[in-house]
Design a protein around this nucleic acid. Structure first.
Length: 409
RNA sequence: CUGGGUGUAGCACAGUUGGUAGCGCGCGACGUUUGGGACGUCGAGGUCGCAGGUUCAAGUCCUGUCACCCAGACCA
């Protein structure tokens, strides 16, 4: 990306209506634009981060044999009425609207009902199972109060995976595989050492669900964990029964704040029963399909990373999700010429700051945007055939010869 | 939803007892600069959130309304 060609612009000061660090930095660095409270646009750099996170998730889920789809955001109330969830008493965050021809519609806050409903068309035999389907979709939730930048929006991007099985053992088996995949996802996006699978409320049909909680000062959740973090649980299930189940003692647990980045759930028949998703088994008996659901808040994940990895100069993206790997600056006639040359070979991984501004401004923006490496090619560095490389995270400066620069990518 | 706060240029802000709107950053032109957000000169940019009202006159006073921020509640 050439900065001369992009419409985005960095801001020296954050707009005053953006109080959360993640929102303020992402806004200043030109990754997002705010439409209204809890509703954001993703600009080229922000979108690139989102796409990187999505690709990591895709990679892990596809390895489990999951299939990607994209379902509609507009919802027919019918399946939701069958589970009782179209009711505003039951689910109070619906955005509802209506058809010009009359009749109500909802904007999807999640997709269990339409997913089960859709699969009725395709699942009828034990031979059709298991099925693992996921999507990346914008969810709409009419939160009373949006807050914390992109951590809690009214419109946000979520990855939701649903699995369907003939029996509970198969559901359990797949659930375990997803746990492994999620662990790898959080490691790969750079949150591995501060994200924990956490026992949380499981609703009516299972005792517990699992959340993935990332330690974060501004998180909305409170979790408790023991010294080696082998037991982590959400405050909502902190009671004698849970402690007994987990073999933990209250006095061994430490309290901390965290942000929920994912939630996985053994739904069993919760939605397949009321929506009548059944299959015929080998004995020709009609059986209800077992179901699990597994969500990751993709845009929230981006916000958590931004919130967590930043310093007084700006964002600090882990390499795996950074929109670009190198922020390239050419100084002087020959330096600029060689920078052009290097950029031309790797346009998709480099932000080339070809703007006609002074170097100091370029350095400041490279830090604000949090690009992993800043590479400067100048007449000075060219004296010994090198470029100066500064690592954003550590601030370490080194010299790399021009022909080895692509090793950074 | 309860409590508190804020709406003035793209961003951040000032605007006195009501008298026809200003500074910084950013933006445009020119010149000097050129390895840490440079400097000078000139310039563009505003229905003062919106709607009513009071007044000769409203950014300023009154009423209503909308939006945004923070805390709490809420988070199926």
């Amino acid at each position: 990306m050439r900065l001369k060609n992009t419409f985005i612009k960095t801001l020296r000061e954050a707009p005053k209506d953006e109080n959360a660090k993640n929102g303020a930095l992402l806004l200043r660095a030109g990754f997002i634009h705010k439409e209204m409270a809890g509703v954001y646009d993703y600009l080229p750099l922000g979108l690139a981060v989102i796409e990187n996170i999505k690709n990591i998730i895709r990679d892990e889920l596809n390895a489990l044999g999951c299939e990607e789809v994209q379902m509609s955001a507009l919802q027919n109330p019918e399946p939701w009425e069958k589970t009782g969830r179209f009711s505003d008493q039951e689910v109070d965050i619906w955005f509802k609207t209506e058809l010009a021809s009359g009749g109500e519609l909802g904007l999807a806050p999640t997709h269990e009902e339409p997913m089960v409903s859709m699969l009725k068309t395709y699942i009828s035999s034990y031979k059709d199972l298991p099925v693992y389907v996921y999507q990346f979709q914008t969810k709409f939730r009419n939160e009373l109060r949006a807050k914390s930048g992109i951590l809690r929006g009214r419109e946000f991007l979520m990855k939701d995976l649903y699995s369907f099985h003939t029996d509970e053992a198969d559901l359990n088996d797949f659930y375990t595989k997803v746990e492994g995949a999620y662990k790898r996802v959080f490691e790969r996006v750079g949150l591995g050492d501060c994200t924990y699978e956490t026992f949380a409320s499981g609703g009516i049909f299972s005792k517990y669900s699992h959340e993935y909680q990332t330690l974060l000062d501004v998180g909305e959740d409170t979790i408790y964990y023991n010294s080696n973090k082998s037991v982590v649980l959400n405050k909502e299930v902190l009671n004698d029964e849970t402690l007994k189940d987990l073999g933990a003692k209250r006095e061994d647990l430490t309290e901390d704040t965290s942000a929920e980045v994912a939630n996985i759930f053994k739904l069993k028949f919760k939605y397949t029963e009321p929506l009548d998703l059944k299959y015929t088994d080998e004995e020709n008996h009609l059986q209800t399909v077992y179901m699990g659901c597994y969500g990751i808040g993709v845009s929230r994940l981006m916000g958590v990373i931004a919130e967590k990895y930043s310093d007084d100069k700006g964002l600090v993206w882990p390499k795996s999700v950074a929109p670009f790997q190198i922020y390239l600056v050419g100084i002087g006639e020959e330096g600029t010429r060689q920078a052009e040359e290097f950029y031309a070979k790797n346009t998709d991984k480099i932000i080339f700051d070809d703007r006609d501004v002074r170097p100091g401004e370029k350095f400041a923006d490279s830090e604000l945007m949090g690009i992993p490496y800043r590479v400067v090619i100048s007449d000075k560095t060219l004296a010994d055939g090198t470029a100066e490389v500064v690592e954003r995270a550590s601030g370490k400066t080194s010299k790399i010869s021009i022909d080895k620069l692509s090793d950074l990518l």
